[in-house]
Design a protein around this nucleic acid. Structure first.
Lengths: 214, 214
DNA sequence: TTTTGTGAAGTTTTTCACAGCG
DNA sequence: CGCTGTGAAAAACTTCACAAAA
């Protein structure tokens, strides 16, 4: 079975929404309600959920707790992923201090920075290394995932160092600019400035298409 | 002519790449080279660019400076957009201090926070107000765009306040969770945790599809 | 009756493949 | 010849519409 990236992104949203609904005491929810709350068509919600088996009750809807658990299982990790964060500036710190990142699926194993005042210290309980130590530390600790929150100019050299560790499998890049990596490394880019530019572009259009909550 | 959101996002990437190439002294570049550097097919690059007229030279490629200017014009703003930032935590500060946000297209007009230590002070040269002042400050200054970098629980009430100002047109939401807004408000969401979950999902798949640089 | 699950239809986006032009 | 621009084909994704189940 083949699952689209967009479906997975929506699945993450569904799960969070269901957690909220659960806290608020809802027991049952329909695809229509989920769709309205997330700005998605009900048929899209049902299609997404149907890829993973029948979980709703016809004429009733979905049981909030059960659906949440079902989605959690789809998204479940086979292990605790070891993660490194390169760049402990404001962006890096924002991630470290974001409660959503304190999940059992991942563990921050190392921080990397070029700032002498940070190197050698523990930040949020995680040791910060010089970025030149990326290959050895990642290899030694078996860190498969790198989050890149460094200045644009440093991004490529950081990934190159991480690739040379031989254990890197995925990158979450919060940096701007191109990033050249071998095909077997999975890269997900998050480019906030590009999203803002997109917003500006569509706002200047005479006929605003309206809300787009992907 | 109708332009897709994804095309605009790529256009932003092309422009940045061209700026880099220009600095490095390149005069001409082919769609193949652009594609290789950004992880995009050459045909996709040509298709994107063709929506806005013929700009390349057959048999030669694209003139770096000319193409950069051409794309800059497509993305150009009709005015300087007035922007407010709600949430001056690590994430908000990361944006404020990111050089990419110091563009002539936008001007930060106001900051909003709930922290008494920040309210009434200037941060990075911009005045920080209590978030309860969102409607009046936004209306008075004609702020059409709101960047949301507040904790998930505060997001909806911040947008509601911004909507009540009557001048809000677009939102860049860096917050998790659903956001209900009228159809005429354009919302762009950036959900870093969802992107990380997506990365984990695809890494656990037996057959990794490889690099995905959208 | 209500709401799911889903094949089929529709739409959008990407890729192909080649004519056309420097 | 090489590389763009672009219709046509293919692929991906979304929406429709309805049978089936509670």
């Amino acid at each position: 079975m083949k699952v689209a990236e967009l479906t997975i992104e929506r699945l993450v949203q569904y799960r969070r929404l269901l957690e909220t609904l659960k806290e608020e005491g809802y027991r049952v929810v329909s695809s229509q309600q989920i769709g309205d709350l997330l700005g998605i068509k009900a048929s899209q919600v049902r299609k997404d959920l149907s890829y993973f088996g029948e979980i709703g009750k016809r004429g009733v809807g979905y049981h909030v707790g059960r659906l949440r658990d079902h989605i959690a299982e789809i998204l479940a990790s086979p292990k605790i992923w070891r993660i490194a964060l390169a760049g402990v500036g404001n962006m890096g710190t924002a991630l470290l201090s974001n409660p959503a990142f304190h999940t059992k699926k991942i563990r921050f194993e190392a921080l990397f920075d070029a700032d002498q005042r940070k190197i050698g210290r523990d930040i949020s309980g995680i040791h910060c290394w010089n970025y030149t130590d990326i290959p050895s530390v990642m290899a030694y600790r078996g860190i498969e995932i790198l989050i890149l929150a460094v200045p644009a100019k440093a991004a490529q050299s950081c990934v190159d160092l991480a690739i040379s560790s031989g254990v890197l499998r995925g990158v979450l890049a919060l940096t701007q600019g191109p990033l050249v990596v071998p095909d077997e490394i999975f890269v997900v880019r998050v480019d906030i400035m590009a999203e803002l530019e997109k917003l500006l572009f569509f706002l200047k259009q005479p006929i605003s298409t309206g809300s787009v909550v992907p």
